[in-house]
Design a protein around this nucleic acid. Structure first.
Lengths: 192, 192
DNA sequence: AAATAAGCTTAAACTAGGTTAAGTCCGACG
DNA sequence: CGTCGGACTTAACCTAGTTTAAGCTTATTT
């Protein structure tokens, strides 16, 4: 059990002192997740910030009609959590599920708050992480109000080429906000 | 010229010491902005974090066809900036423009970085601010991939009732990712 | 190895939303 | 005081994306 990947991740932003690394140990839990296993389910509060060491997750919501909508994919060296639910302790409206078998490092709320207090630079690091994720999401919103489905698909391929190979098209369609059938048509059009 | 509204804003998260408030003074600039005046234009780096004391702004992009797309509205006690461009110093793809005459408090990059270093709790405060904005944006993405235009319009009215009264419908349509004509049709359907 | 489920594609009929164009109703400005 | 441009609407026609349903292929489970 090693929290090394997490330390490396933090240090890609700001180097940590030995004493700070030691604080991390014991506040971080490693877990193995099976394919299709959920680490968050609608109706339950999100209890962890999850850092992905290996594997791939999707975050999705289910609407009244029972259709799933993928909000986000996350893979190695990335975080996944329902931030709103996590901090407020409120029941989440979202699911988080492994698409591939995965290894993750998880931090519980009380531990994260302890770490924020005792390693002040973590405030800075997570500020930057969330800022970057904010910019990414903003670009996605811009695309969604200004581009056709085909343009959005091409952007997705361009932006996440590795992910696109690992994911079934059904999941990609759900992420783009279109039906699998229509994605199929788009792919046909592009090919010709 | 008072930075009091900004101090009050920060203190709604964490109280500041007198010495910290003094550091803010001199690093924050007040400006009056006229209706339709731009504080950021495509092609220029975003030089300021802008805190709105009074008035209302929109952030938008212009696509190849020349159509404007509103990404975001911000009003009193809210921030507006192209975060990506601000930190990277890269030319922005966005415009930020006053919808109403406005009073703002602006912080330049070097000053913000100085403040982050000398008032460590600002890292925490901005982390929380960006987290909240991230959650908001995530909800918007979810809506955009899962709801019809009518549902999105009703949610907008529900979520920003005051803003809805201050904004021309043209601007709201652009924010929702639909044409003004179609919004008009939606409004007619809702009324009946 | 068989059974079953999950994923991809095609196609026809349909609906949400866009386009074009014309007309009305202001508020801004000379 | 007139007129000019911006904001809102209506309506006819058009297109991007959905629905339903079927058939085919590739994984996963037993």
């Amino acid at each position: 059990m090693s929290i090394q990947p997490l330390i490396a991740h933090f240090e890609s932003y700001i180097p940590l002192k030995e004493s700070e690394k030691q604080l991390l140990d014991g506040r971080v839990t490693q877990r193995q997740i099976k394919r299709k296993q959920a680490i968050l389910q609608e109706g339950f509060p999100c209890r962890h910030y999850t850092f992905i060491v290996e594997g791939c997750f999707r975050m999705y919501a289910i609407d009244k009609k029972g259709t799933e909508h993928n909000l986000q994919f996350s893979a190695e060296q990335d975080w996944i959590a329902d931030i709103g639910s996590f901090h407020a302790g409120r029941p989440s409206a979202l699911f988080i599920e492994a698409i591939e078998p995965a290894v993750v490092l998880q931090i519980e709320k009380q531990d994260l708050y302890f770490l924020y207090t005792n390693i002040p630079k973590l405030d800075r690091i997570f500020k930057v992480i969330v800022e970057n994720k904010y910019v990414e999401l903003q670009n996605r919103v811009l695309q969604s109000i200004s581009s056709t489905a085909q343009e959005r698909y091409l952007t997705f391929l361009d932006q996440y080429p590795k992910l696109a190979l690992r994911l079934p098209n059904t999941q990609i369609a759900s992420y783009l906000g279109i039906t699998p059938e229509f994605l199929s048509k788009i792919r046909k059009d592009i090919a010709s």
